[in-house]
Write a protein that binds this DNA or RNA. Sequence first.
DNA 1: GTGCCACCTGTAGCGACTACAGGATCAAGA
DNA 2: TCTTGATCCTGTAGTCGCTACAGGTGGCAC
Lengths: 132, 132
Amino acid sequence: MTGIPIGELSRRTGVNIETIRYFEKVGILPPPPRTGGGHRVYDEGHVRALGFIRRARELGFTPDEVRAILNLGGPGKACCNEVRDIAAHHLERVRVKMADLGQLERLLATTIEQCSGGTAPDCAVIDMLEHS
Amino acid sequence: MTGIPIGELSRRTGVNIETIRYFEKVGILPPPPRTGGGHRVYDEGHVRALGFIRRARELGFTPDEVRAILNLGGPGKACCNEVRDIAAHHLERVRVKMADLGQLERLLATTIEQCSGGTAPDCAVIDMLEHS
DNA sequence: GTGCCACCTGTAGCGACTACAGGATCAAGA
DNA sequence: TCTTGATCCTGTAGTCGCTACAGGTGGCAC
């Protein structure tokens, strides 16, 4: 039941060792205690926190948002309006991005459809790109 | 009817001066002739090409794809199957990304809805982030 | 006590730009 | 012709979010 070295933390969370040290350097993951020789010693709390961080990043939360949520108490502590606000803000960004991509999708699809595919001098795709 | 200096090219295309020089360095924009003193001198062809590059980048085409399209003849020359293929490939990427974002959107939306917003000990948002 | 893996720090690399420093050139007015 | 000031030049370094490496130490089993 001794502490967890960085390599095991990496294996258990799927986060690169270098990335773990990077998260510590930029203040996302709290610095753990060290052995006499200077090796980092983590505990189960760190495992949970790092898993949380990883998942939040995968879901597209920015590093600043992750920091903000963790500073509000982090996983396992009380929920608050702020956490929900951050998530809602993120949802808004996702929706805007989806709308943008939807426009782009329609433009690309109709343009490609119009393209003959031959070597004709007029190409719908190139027209699309030229005429903003 | 003399040549166009880089500053005017920048203003006319909306592309940063530094970015224009960067595009030249990485082989996206062909190097223009120079004055005796070494200043770049562009023409209308460069204006069209750079506008094309800018628009393609805005639409999410990768630099490699832009290079590929320009190498196939670029704007004003004959269209070909390759251009359409590149656009179709890009469309595929856009659709995959939209599907991903759609999943994320539903997850976020339902989770936020479940969150009480108070300071209760169980928070749906934090649960979502913790339990991958 | 020795072998070897895991760990440490610090620095450099990625891509796609952007920003700056320090100097040269150009065009227009006096 | 000379001067002024805007524009331009090159080269280097910064950005973000990591990732990778080099060269050196710690921990632990045998």
